[in-house]
């Protein structure tokens, strides 16, 4: 059983799969927030994945669902001022600033992702700034799990259960989409050309989606980085 360390993380190889057995970046609380026993940080994921096809559940980010009217200039300017980030206007596009990521979900709906725990104060600041505006700020940090799939074969793996065209010409880094994967509703976000996909299934579906993805990676010798 070879063991190794990668930066802040400790790995164990077992039956051809790598298991993360420690990640000093995270608190116990963070890890318990995942649907599997050991969630990873993004940094630990990057170190563990390397160039292989890799899947992991990450600690879910803080998440706010934001509804508002783009035609209302007051809403847009106040919201952007608090977020420090533009609201994406193009369908299925994403804007990022610092540790904030804003995903377009609809003409009047966005998902704002921030560091775990950061959602509470962010929600308060948004609500305060938008007090007299017709908006809805809803904490949805618990609504979804956060999976990350990276590797050259990632598109092929997703294509086994996702009807959306994920070809690089059609779905570029910085794109997001609400679609279906493995017959469950899925929010996809493509981060880079590796390609690295962030998958946000509804939390209750996460164990099924992980089992489905692990199965779908079989042809590509993909690894699931969380301990089972």
């Amino acid at each position: 059983m070879p063991a190794g360390t990668g930066g802040s993380s400790i790995f164990l190889a077992l039956d051809g799969a790598w298991f993360l057995i420690g990640d000093d970046l995270m608190s116990e609380l963070d890890r318990a927030a995942c649907t599997v026993p050991l969630g990873l940080s993004a940094k630990a994921f990057a170190e563990a994945a390397g160039t292989r096809l890799a899947l992991a559940e990450l600690v879910p980010p803080g998440a706010l669902n934001l509804r508002g009217d783009l035609a209302d200039h007051g809403f847009v300017s106040k919201a952007c001022a608090v977020l420090g980030c533009e609201l994406p206007r193009a369908p299925n596009s994403v804007q990022s600033a610092g540790e904030l990521t804003v995903l377009w979900l609809g003409p009047d709906e966005w998902l704002v992702l921030t560091a775990p725990g950061g959602e509470i104060s962010l929600a308060e600041r948004l609500e305060e700034a938008l007090l007299e505006t017709h908006v809805a700020v809803t904490d949805v940090s618990g609504n979804r799990a956060h999976l990350r799939l990276k590797g050259a074969a990632a598109r092929e793996v997703l294509a086994k259960g996702c009807p959306l065209d994920l070809h690089p010409r059609m779905f570029k880094p910085g794109s997001c989409a609400q679609t279906v994967l493995a017959r469950t509703s899925m929010l996809l976000h493509l981060l880079d050309d590796a390609p690295t996909f962030d998958l946000f299934p509804r939390r209750s579906f996460a164990p099924y989606v992980v089992a489905w993805l692990v199965d779908a990676m079989r042809d590509h010798e993909g690894v699931f980085l969380n301990a089972a």
């Binding site: 017709h134 809805a136 809803t138 949805v140 940090s141 618990g142 609504n143 979804r144 209750s204």
Partner: peptide
């Protein structure tokens, strides 16, 4: 002027 958001899984 109403917004609906699913929070079934939030809690």
């Amino acid at each position: 002027k109403v917004y609906l958001t699913s929070i079934t899984e939030q809690w």
